[in-house]
Design a protein around this nucleic acid. Structure first.
Lengths: 158, 158
DNA sequence: CGTGAAAGATTGTGCTT
DNA sequence: AAGCACAATCTTTCACG
């Protein structure tokens, strides 16, 4: 994982339809060498998959919300994960430390559907209460920058 | 936007490296017709881009957290968005309704770096307090299902 | 929406450093 | 090991029906 790999990841995040020739030119490598590096990034699991980014509003998921769930007893990890994964309106689910036990991100077509999903979340075994934060406007959602510097450094040189 | 389009979106989300011939076979269309549909989905903005999904831990972003920000005065949208976007450890930023004004998702390499990012968030003009929820374990993060049914329907037929 | 041909990309082999 | 250059194969992309 050198700087060329990180640069390739950033370029592929921005546009994965580019040819290896174009990618190679951007990082100063031949098409073949570039392809070989990307193949290794895939095999090592650094690149998990190539995907398309779909506009949520265009597929009837224009309403987003974060829901914090409290659990009474300790919820079996596997079991809870499966119950949440079965609800297709849940985009992410995490175990968290803080006020709540679980944090999930939900997308629905309307506030009414959001309410229906909340009702279903209350039916998940172990869930005792929910606290919902509705998204009014999204500033941005973007891929992580692989060229990571540390926030403890003074000023980032652009 | 018919069911074939939605099916194509789901297939492309799962693997955007497939050939149009393979996609076409899966939905019962020729390679040419499939390509035309996908081209239109791109042009209409339903598909925003093709990207690679990178393992956060592999690029030094193994720690995730959600931070809720409170604002004193009303924060100018554009200005705040720019200040947050300038911090590369912030993956998402939303205006929210509820206990807080803003919700952001942060990824860093360590708890120490998370603390440094929180310090920087306090320096954003208008921010008065932060409440942080640290992710201990991620169950899943997945693309939305474009074949959206409503949660108000009885039982989902698989 | 399908077919077929031209243009272009991907993937493999051999060779060099 | 890693990269380059050339060649074979497959895909995309453009006609036209």
């Amino acid at each position: 994982m050198d700087n060329i790999d990180r640069e390739l990841l950033a370029l592929l995040q921005a546009d994965a339809t580019q040819s290896y020739a174009a990618l190679g030119e951007a990082v100063g490598l031949s098409s073949g060498a570039t392809h070989e590096r990307v193949r290794k990034l895939r095999r090592r699991g650094v690149i998990r998959r190539t995907s398309v980014d779909v506009d949520p509003a265009a597929v009837g998921k224009g309403v987003a919300a974060f829901v914090m769930l409290d659990a009474s007893a300790w919820m079996g990890g596997e079991e809870t994960a499966a119950a949440l994964a079965a609800l297709p309106w849940i985009e992410e689910a995490h175990i968290v430390a803080g006020a709540a036990s679980l944090m999930v991100k939900v997308r629905t077509s309307s506030p009414e559907d959001l309410q229906a999903v909340l009702r279903r979340l209350h039916e998940v075994p172990g869930v005792t209460s929910t606290q919902t934060v509705v998204v009014l406007e999204t500033f941005f959602e973007r891929p992580l920058d692989p060229r990571g510097d540390s926030p403890r450094d003074q000023e980032r040189p652009s």
